[in-house]
Every structure is written in structure tokens, then in C-alpha cells.
Amino acid sequence: MKTLFIHSLIIVSMMLSAPVLAQGDPLRVGMSGQYFPFTFVEQDKLKGFEVDVMNAVGKEMGREIQYQTANFSGLFGMLESGRIDTVANQITITEERQKAYIFSEPYVYDGAQVVTKEGNTEVESVEDLKGKTVAVNLGSNFEALLRELPYADEINIKTYESNLERDTALGRVDAFVMDRVSASQIIKEKPLPLELAGPTFSQITNAYPFRNTEAGQALRDEVNAALTILRDNGTLAAISEKWFGTDITQP
């Protein structure tokens, strides 16, 4: 431990300023690997909409993409501590986050959706959540959206690290709130008795967050340039069609 500490000190003295990402350096991207169909693993292979978009962005930028998976609760810590350059995990732009990070142009436009166990007649829209227990993912923006509702005090919000779909199907909570796109996809493709409850209730725009530093701004600009090209040549739309059968990359 002592030598490790001394080594750390030596390295501290060597690199007092974080350098701007050099040409050809890989872009380090964090994701949870646990958000179907955006980022998930099948037979040891990282897949999903986020992976496809990021690969396309990397190709345009001429940079290799280095993926780093971690539990969602660890991702912003990794971004903050400079271990990754951005997060590709459907990060919604919010005022809170804008205080701490700078965002790329949005690449997904979506809405918040209530999902219940199949056959639930008590909850058929967001208004019905009064007095109910509702699951949201830890650190996701959906908790904030629920708290903005005028009757937020009457909703019992439960935050999950993962597996909230399963707990809703088991009836441990009355509903969960997620983005409409992935909720529809889960219902369509996975063996869980769930259904959408009513229309979406809030618009959300998702983008890549970067540290608000010189290096972060430079990377953000590079990513934005790549996104513009991919939007114009139809790549973004094609990737979206592949995963969702609809274009979620346009407002």
C-alpha cells in the first residue's frame, strides 16, 4: 500500500494538467450495459442502439471507441474523475446536469412512459399514479419528472439500480416509468407480462455529457460535427429503424 501511495504521488507530480485528447487517441465511452435495447450484452458481446451510434460517431471522428461498462451509479463518477470522456446511456439533458456538464446536440427525442403489469386496470395513465408505488432507475431523469407532477407527494417513488421491469411484472411495485421507446421494446421482445399505460407525459431529449473543460469542449465539438454528418446522410435514422422500427433521432 505504501509503495502504491508513493507511486501515485510520483505520477501526480508528473501530470499536473490533464492534456487535450491527441489526434488518434481513443474516445472512452461509459455505459451501463444494462439498458435494453440501448446497451446490453449477449454472449459476451456488447450491443445496442448506443453502441451502433457511438461506433458510427467514432468512425466519423477517426477515433477508436473504448467502451467501459459499469453500474449506472458509477458512470458519472467515472466521467467526473476523468476515467471516461462521455456517457452513452440515454442521458437526458436536465438543468441540474447542465450546471455540471456540457452536452452534445441531442440524438434521441423521446417521452416518459408509465408501464404496468399486464391486466392492471387501476393505473391507465400518469394521473392514476396518485397513491401508488412507482419504480424508476437510480440516477435517471424519470424520478425528477415524477417529482414535478402536482400530486408528486402522493406518489411513492422507489429507485432501482436495475431489474425494475422484473419487479413490476412480479407486482412488487404498481408501475415503472421509463422512456417510451425502450419500454415498448421490452414489452415486444422480452418474456415479461407488462403493458404501456396511457400516452407519454413529458418530452425528453438525450445527448452525450462532457466535462466542462477545454478538452471536454473540444471533444464535444468533434462529436457534434460527427452527429451532424450522420444525421444528414441518414445513418442515425437507419440505426434507429434497425432497433426500434421508427426514427427516434428526430424531434
Binding site: F40, D44, T69, G74
Partner: peptide, 23 residues
Amino acid sequence: AFTLGVTELMGATQKEAAGSFLY
């Protein structure tokens, strides 16, 4: 360790389960 981004046995399992929903 997966909370620190180290994909060990548990982290790998969590990601696989998220892809298949076969918890």
C-alpha cells in the same frame, strides 16, 4: 467491483441478464 467498472463474474452476469431478461 462492477460499480467501479470492473467486469468480473457478477458484472458479466448482470449485463447478460439485462440482455436476455432471464434473471
